[in-house]
Design a protein around this nucleic acid. Structure first.
Lengths: 118, 118
DNA sequence: AAGATACTTAGCTAAATAGCTAAGTATTGA
DNA sequence: TCAATACTTAGCTATTTAGCTAAGTATCTT
């Protein structure tokens, strides 16, 4: 039997991770940060929107735990936090496993029927 | 070099898939459906909300392409569509790869420095 | 010391989302 | 045929979200 990964306690962690990644601007930030840390201005520059608007996206990412940041002087440097991304992968992997297991059962069932009718 | 999976054309597919899964009710529906098809009432019964409210969640899942359904008589039967889930897995896997690759580079760099300073 | 840089805060608007109730339609079972 | 079942539609409300501008604070740089 396949059990869920960790999961039940921190339900809301998945909520906010999925939610944070549902926006293309925020996914672009993640895609950038997997290559290494970057400042707010660096992250913002490719995006055609007012800075406060962009900062809001960044805040969503930080609130979700996907991104952390430290401020030194006047520059805030952001980096990725791997754990929440791995939790997402875990959930999806769990679904795929259950799904695959079911397909296996169906295949086995079909073979049984084939044997008993042909 | 690691390239993104398909991606650029169907950006909005990722948007709506992530968005659909950001709600615990909707994730519970997916968790149920990986075990096999189910009717609307079956899916709704564990959830303490008005039926129209639940149907709305189901519509979000269908609009995102994660779930499909067919109506026969008065019963609508829902089932999972694997492709969008795999696209999500693909995106996450891509990020993980780039991230891992970067860690490798950092490790290699650290070894170089070690060799040249000790 | 003054100006430029890099955020940060405050506050507004429009649109989307999640929830509800009430009432309607189409099938099925008695 | 009539009642129950299984959705379905319509319409309302409250909250959240994404976007903006304007103005503020804290650090550099010269």
């Amino acid at each position: 039997m396949i059990l869920p990964p960790i999961l039940h306690p921190m339900q809301s962690q998945l909520d906010s991770s999925f939610s944070a990644l549902s926006d293309p601007t925020r996914r672009a930030v993640i895609e950038r940060l997997v290559n290494g840390p970057a400042s707010v201005s660096d992250l913002a520059s490719p995006h055609d929107m007012a800075l406060p608007t962009f900062m809001r996206h960044l805040k969503v990412l930080e609130d979700s735990g996907l991104v952390r940041s430290v401020k030194k002087g006047r520059v805030r440097t952001c980096h990725i936090e791997a754990a929440p991304l791995m939790e997402l992968q875990g959930w999806l992997e769990w679904q795929r496993r259950v799904w695959d297991q079911r397909l296996d059962r169906l295949t086995t069932l079909a073979e049984h029927i084939n044997r008993n009718t042909s």
